[in-house]
Write a protein that binds this DNA or RNA. Structure first.
Lengths: 245, 245
DNA sequence: CGCACCTTGCGAACGCCGTACGCTACGATG
DNA sequence: CATCGTAGCGTACGGCGTTCGCAAGGTGCG
């Protein structure tokens, strides 16, 4: 919050010299934007609110960022840098890919708002972090023994799965967060609605019923792991019978 | 476009009786919204523009739809109804699942704007079309021989993959569409930028190089099929040695 | 037939958004 | 000391989602 404005500012009480250093910078803007997004979600990010957080006017940001879309591209690439991809090692490619998948999932769940901008920004853009991580992940598949073009397809397969799965997860968690309730209570309060909706769909209802007994968070993690395992099984069978689990 | 307004409307020239039938309805609104979205993309959808298309004022829509978010939920469920899921048949579960995956992909590519609202709306909502299709797809996996809970995970795996893959595809195509150029020309014009960006990433560059020679659309379809095949391989190995390809 | 009520549609208005533009004031450069 | 480039900002514009109160037609009831 900046100093309060006096309606008739005296010439003596100068607003502030404060020309220490640029005060605003692309990095500060991006990092503050991420904090704001994590704390309050995608709808809370406006150029004005972000400017206020930085103790600056809304339009000052345009000195460092072309427009809001560009800001979002920067922000997405920045958080992509949080993903950890192990170094390539032919002996443990499966573990390395699994770790990467988990790391990508955690990143998205830490920043659930990204799933609501993926449609605008695409996954395949040219940010340095995104390219670096893709290169490292591609190396994992090459080390496993996939030829250049198949390694590319394998990586796309894995990333698509993780993004698809976490999109649904993050969207669910966002809705939950907006409800302001504990997950248990929230599900309980929706129970009548869902049960009525499931009335005509016995198969779906069965699944929901058996799921009722377990911790939902653990259930989501298990589902995620199941998918990763199946994908790796499918990929592994394309390789020679060389690598062990 | 409605009739032009006269500044001083005469009592004789009444604006219109036109009280034939309600004129506006939830269905008309949803279907016109989809046409608008398909034609001009997500940014072109505003309550005002949609109202105008329907020959109505913006605020009239609120008699039939609670707010824009609800409209989007309706629209998403509506297009979900376009997906075709074959009837369950143990002998051909693999083909049936493959068909469903392709149908879902085509639907998203026909309506590429959906990927930019998936983050808000989630995939797991309670729309009737979504529930109906999920039930049918679940039946496919049950017929294949998966137990209730594993069938659920298998379905989630497949859908997550298709959504993830098509998200990236649709986002790419949206950017391309906004450029207003032919895909060939567009890629050509971006060539210098991408080549410079790929400079430090030899593995990524290799992939891009071999991809250069083929039809990009075919390439995307092939990649998609590759992923579906690997997933089905991974799933199939979980079943007994019963089902043939 | 008269009258009350309900539903549909709409115009005006509010507060917020992204952002273009031109001004100020400062530090650096000659 | 004069000049210039640049960071920051105040103002303003057009568009957004949405609220509210009013008008006009249809319906049901005495």
């Amino acid at each position: 919050m900046p100093a309060e404005k006096q309606p008739i500012p005296s010439v003596w009480a100068r607003p502030r010299p404060k020309r220490e250093q640029p005060s605003l910078s692309r990095d500060r803007i991006v990092s503050e934007a991420i904090q704001l997004l994590d704390a309050e979600g995608i709808d809370a990010l406006s150029m004005r609110s972000l400017g206020a957080r930085l103790g600056a006017g809304a339009t000052s940001l345009y000195r460092h960022v072309a427009n809001k879309d560009e800001l979002i591209e920067l922000v997405v690439d920045e958080i992509y840098g949080e993903v950890r991809v192990p170094a390539a090692d032919p002996a443990h490619w499966r573990a390395a890919v699994t770790d990467s998948a988990h790391s990508l999932r955690s990143m998205v769940l830490r920043h659930p708002w990204v799933v609501s901008v993926l449609g605008q920004v695409g996954l395949a853009y040219l940010g340095p972090n995104l390219m670096r991580q893709s290169e490292r992940m591609l190396a994992l598949f090459r080390a496993a023994g996939f030829a250049a073009d198949e390694a590319d397809q394998a990586m796309k397969l894995l990333i698509a799965y993780v993004i698809g799965m976490t999109t649904s997860e993050a969207a669910y968690l966002s809705v939950l967060a907006r409800s302001g309730q504990n997950e248990q209570d929230w599900l309980e309060s929706l129970r009548p609605t869902t049960e009525e909706a499931l009335q005509e769909y016995p198969l779906l209802r069965d699944g929901r019923a058996t799921a009722q007994t377990k911790d939902p968070e653990q259930l989501r993690a298990d589902s995620f792991v199941y998918g990763v395992e199946r994908i790796l099984d499918g990929l592994e069978s394309r390789l020679g019978r060389t690598s062990a689990r």
